[in-house]
Design a protein around this nucleic acid. Structure first.
Length: 324
DNA sequence: ATGGTTTTTACTGCGTC
DNA sequence: GACGCGGTAAAAACCAT
């Protein structure tokens, strides 16, 4: 397909001619006067053609899905067909050979690829369980590949390494997942995950920003099924509080939990310390202590107290109505 | 390894239903 | 008696040195 190079502004460095032809089928720009090839190996970014049904699509498609790290071969590996349609293209006499070839291909895939493939399926599972965004998921996949290349996975379980990366990178993405959550969905115990995490983070030079309480709020709020209003309120509290000394050095998760508790109460939502502690993975004691700290540094102890009384009264009223 | 800090564990008291 | 809340002391976990 030869086209005149339109307003590309190109001119031939040999003869100065502006008549540049571009041959999109070869990916070249050619000077029409002297025949000099200006650049080759160009990528044609134009749409090839349109396909109006699946048959046409099959005939014309030259490329597959976009490259992705979510597949161990970035989605471009060649696999000997396994669909029924594929199978029937092979004559009955050659079936045996077909299967033999197919098996050999499986065996020839390197162990690294196998590991990576398994890791990615694990990542996929964890991601959907924790509803990680896909860009984060890709990032984790890339990190895992790096870890694999540096031999960090040797002697450690794939699940633990993946879990560590989820933990580290989700924090970097400002939506940290709790270690307890990760443990639950990946089936790694907390000790193991913690150890692996430290090791992997150090080896890969993951700069781990100390987590901020406010980053934990959204995740915790959804875990607790609290309203958006309370979530917003909790964030407000935290921004008001952030310069105070009362809470420095305290665990950010406990802080987020306690703030959410206060926010929920102030919004009149029914929630018990017990439930929060259970869902978020800190103790009731911690929540109580943080609550005190927060209320003190915010100077809202009285209003929190008042609100709690209100809620109690409300509950009583409702019970009365039910019994009537 | 150690000491200081925070969190957890375990237990108790209080009030309400 | 069960439940939610508040408090305490000692044990455990964590962190920087």
């Amino acid at each position: 397909m030869l086209k005149k190079g339109k307003k590309s502004g190109l001119s031939c460095p040999e003869c100065g001619s502006n008549e540049i032809l571009s041959d999109s089928s070869k990916g070249e720009n050619i000077c029409s006067k002297c025949g000099l090839i200006l650049n080759d190996g160009m990528i044609d970014t134009q749409q090839d053609w349109r396909a109006f049904d699946s048959e046409e699509l099959e005939k014309t498609a030259r490329t597959g899905a976009p490259l992705t790290r979510m597949r161990h071969d970035k989605g471009i590996g060649t696999e000997i067909g396994k669909s029924k349609a594929e199978l029937f293209k092979v004559s009955a006499g050659k079936r045996g050979q077909y299967f033999r070839i197919k098996n050999w291909q499986k065996r020839l895939v390197s162990s690294k690829d196998r590991n990576y493939g398994y890791a990615l399926s694990e990542l996929e599972r964890i991601s959907s369980a924790l509803s990680l965004p896909s860009n984060l998921q890709e990032e984790i996949g890339a990190m895992y590949e790096k870890a694999l290349e540096e031999g960090l996975v040797k002697g450690r379980s794939i699940e633990a390494v993946i879990g560590s990366l989820v933990y580290a990178l989700s924090r970097e993405y400002k939506s940290p997942r709790l270690m307890s959550e990760i443990c639950e969905v990946s089936g790694v115990d907390k000790r193991d995950l913690g150890r692996t995490y430290r090791y992997v983070a150090r080896k890969l030079n993951l700069r781990v920003i100390p987590a901020k309480a406010i980053d934990y709020v959204p995740r915790c709020a959804t875990l607790l099924k609290l309203s958006d209003k309370s979530q917003v309120r909790a964030k407000q509290y935290l921004t008001q509080i952030k310069s105070e000394e009362e809470v420095s050095g305290k665990g950010p998760i406990g802080l987020a939990a306690a703030t959410l508790y206060i926010a929920a109460i102030m919004n009149g939502e029914e929630i018990s310390q017990r439930k929060i502690a259970e869902a978020i993975g800190v103790t009731e004691v911690t929540i109580r202590n943080r609550c005190k700290d927060i209320a003190k540094s915010l100077g809202i102890e009285d209003s929190v107290d008042k609100k709690m009384k209100e809620i109690e009264a409300l509950q009583k009223n409702r019970l009365d109505e039910e019994s009537l």
